[in-house]
Design a protein around this nucleic acid. Structure first.
Length: 464
RNA sequence: GGUCCCGUCGUCUAGUGGCCUAGGACAUCUGGUUUUCAGCCAGAGAAUCUGGGGUUCGAAUCCCCACGGGAUCACCA
C-alpha cells in the first residue's frame, strides 16, 4: 500500500505553487499505485501562523483538484491531521527517546546558545550545540523538576548516514556535521523534525516526496527513525522551483500563492498541467494532458534533478490551449462567474466565438470586450477628420433591414469601395468608432452583437 | 565558510556509449490565411551538450578535477 502526503504549514496566506508542484507528484504517486494521498497541517510554529491561512490553503487545494483521502477537513483513520492537536503524542515519544538515552533534556537559555554559536563561528567551526546539558543530565532534571523551561534534544550519533533517494540515488552525510536537533520545544510543541517523523510513521506514510530543501536534514530524520526502531520510508526529494535569476521561487520576484494564478483566470487544470512539466516530461512528449493521463504516465524515477525556472509565459500559453478546448457554453459560465455575474450573460454568450482564441486567461476577457458592454470613452485615433466617411457609412448601415454579420459585411465593403480607401484603412476607422480601439475582435461580428441601434448611435455621436 | 544537490537552445525539456551533423515545446523572427489582433499553417534563427582531463574504436551519455548555480547549517518549516 502506497501512502503519500503533503504537509503544508499555515505560515503564508495560501498554498505556495511549489507545494502544489510537490503535492501533484504525491497525489500522482499515490493514485498510480492505488494508494492514498493525505493532507496534514504542520502548524507547530505558533509565532508564524497566519490567521486564515490554513482555511485558504485547504480551499485552494480542493479547488485545484488535489483531493485528499484523509485531511483535517474530512478526517480519516489517523485523526487528528493537524499537528497542534497532537501535542501529547509528540511529548510521549520525545520522553520515550529521552528515557532510552537517545535524546536528552536541555535547559540552556537562548542567550547562552547565541553566544556559543557566535564564538564557534568566529573560530570558523560548524555551529553546533556543545552538549553542555547532556553532560549534566542529573542537575538538568532537578532544575526541570523545580519548574525550569526545557527542550528535548536528539543525541546525534557520530556516524555516517546513507540513504537512497528515489530520484537522486545514494546520498551520504556524516553525523558529525549534524547538530543535536531540538525535538520538543519549550512551549511543548514539537519541531518539524519530530513532528514529521512521528506523524509519517503513525499515519503509515510509505513515500516521503518533498522539496529539495529537506535533503540536508533527512539524516536527522533517519537517525530519529532508527532511534525509535521504526521502518524508514522511501524518500524522494524534488527540485525547487526557481525565479528567473535561479534563486528559490519567492514572492518578491513572482506570484507564489496559488490563488493569485486562479484569480487571474488561469484554470486549475492548466496550472497542474504546467506544473507537471516542471522536472518531468510525458513519455510520448505530450505537452497537454489531463490529470488522469498524468497519473497513468507518471513515475518517480523519471523525475529530473535539475531545478526548473517557473515561466509564467508558457503557463499562459498552456491556459490558452485549455480555453480553446472548453465548450462554449462552459466558457460562458466561467467568464460570467469570473466577473462575479456582473456582465450580461447573453452578450458574453454571443461573444464567445469571437474571443475564444483571442484570450489566454479569463482576465483577458474584459480588456478585450469592454466595448460590448458600454460605448468607448476614448478613441485610439482622432475621429475628427473622419466625419464625412462615418456619415456615409452610417447612412448605408441604416438601410440594412436584416442586421447580420453578412449584411453588415457586405454593406461596409460597399462603403469601403465608395470611399476609395484601402480596406485596412477603412475598417480601422470603423473599428475605432465602434470599439474605441485599434485592436478588437472581428468587427462585423462585434457589430452584430451590439445591434443596429447601438452601432448607429456610436457612429452618429462622432458625426455631430 | 562546512555539508549536500545540480549544470543540454533565452526558458521547459528529449537524450541512460554508436540512430545526435543533438529532437520537441514556449518565447523570438519571417511568410501565408489579402479588415486589426488572436488563432491556424509553413519556415528560420537559437545549445562547440559549463570547462579541462581521462576511459573507449566511439561520449551529451562513464570516471576525475575545475568552474558556475542552488539548498541547508534555529526552541522556522
Amino acid at each position: 500500500m502506497v501512502r503519500t502526503r503533503i504537509a503544508p504549514s499555515p505560515t503564508g496566506k495560501d498554498v505556495h505553487v511549489g507545494s502544489i508542484s510537490t503535492g501533484l507528484m504525491n497525489f500522482a504517486w499515490a493514485k498510480k499505485n492505488g494508494g492514498q494521498f493525505i493532507i496534514r497541517i504542520e502548524d507547530t510554529d505558533q509565532t508564524r501562523i497566519v490567521p486564515g491561512g490554513e482555511k485558504k490553503m485547504l480551499e485552494t487545494l480542493e479547488k485545484i483538484g488535489l483531493h485528499a483521502d484523509e485531511s483535517p477537513l474530512i478526517g480519516g483513520p489517523y485523526i487528528p491531521y493537524r499537528q497542534s492537536e497532537r501535542l501529547t503524542i509528540y511529548k510521549k515519544y520525545a520522553e520515550e527517546l529521552a528515557a532510552n538515552g537517545k535524546a536528552y533534556y536541555c535547559t540552556c537559555k537562548p542567550e547562552r546558545l547565541d553566544a556559543m554559536r557566535k564564538k564557534q563561528q568566529a573560530e570558523k567551526k560548524i555551529p553546533k550545540y556543545d552538549r553542555h546539558c547532556y553532560t549534566i543530565q542529573k542537575e538538568v532534571k532537578e532544575e526541570i523538576a523545580k519548574g525550569s523551561k526545557f527542550v528535548i534534544r536528539l543525541l546525534i550519533p557520530d556516524t555516517e548516514v546513507t540513504f537512497t533517494d528515489l530520484i537522486r540515488g545514494t546520498v551520504t552525510m556524516t553525523g558529525s556535521n549534524l547538530d543535536d536537533q531540538v525535538l520538543l520545544k519549550s512551549d511543548g510543541f514539537p519541531t518539524y523534525h519530530l513532528g514529521v517523523v512521528v506523524d509519517d510513521h503513525l499515519m503509515k506514510i510509505t513515500h516521503v516526496i518533498r522539496g529539495e530543501e529537506w535533503l540536508p536534514s533527512t539524516p536527522k530524520h533517519i537517525i530519529l527513525y532508527e532511534a525509535f526502531g521504526w521502518e524508514i520510508p522511501f524518500y524522494a526529494h524534488v527540485s525547487l522551483l526557481r525565479n528567473p535569476d535561479k534563486s528559490k521561487l519567492s514572492k518578491r520576484k513572482n506570484p507564489v500563492w496559488t490563488s493569485e494564478y486562479l484569480e487571474k483566470g488561469i484554470f486549475p487544470e492548466a496550472l497542474l498541467n504546467y506544473l507537471a512539466l516542471m522536472g518531468w516530461s510525458h513519455p510520448e512528449g505530450k505537452e497537454i494532458f489531463t490529470l488522469d493521463e498524468y497519473v497513468a504516465a507518471f513515475d518517480l524515477k523519471d523525475v529530473q534533478t535539475t531545478a526548473p525556472v517557473f515561466d509564467p509565459v508558457k503557463l499562459e500559453w498552456m491556459n490558452g490551449e485549455y480555453i480553446r478546448k472548453v465548450q462554449n457554453s462552459k466558457l460562458k459560465v466561467q467568464i460570467c462567474e469570473f466577473y462575479k455575474n456582473e456582465l450580461s450573460e447573453s452578450v458574453v454568450e454571443k461573444s464567445i466565438p469571437i474571443i475564444k482564441e483571442r484570450i489566454k486567461k479569463l482576465s483577458d476577457y474584459l480588456p478585450l470586450c469592454d466595448f460590448l458592454f458600454h460605448p468607448p470613452s476614448t478613441y485610439a485615433v482622432d475621429m475628427g477628420p473622419r466625419k464625412q466617411l462615418l456619415g456615409q457609412a452610417s447612412k448605408k448601415l441604416e438601410s440594412i433591414t436584416d442586421w447580420s454579420v453578412k449584411s453588415i459585411g457586405d454593406t461596409l465593403m460597399e462603403a469601403c469601395k465608395d470611399s476609395g480607401l484601402k480596406t485596412g484603412e477603412f475598417f480601422m476607422i470603423l473599428r475605432v468608432a465602434i470599439t474605441g480601439k485599434k485592436i478588437s475582435p472581428p468587427l462585423n461580428e462585434s457589430m452584430e452583437i451590439l445591434g443596429k441601434d447601438e452601432c448607429l448611435t456610436r457612429i452618429n455621436v462622432l458625426i455631430n
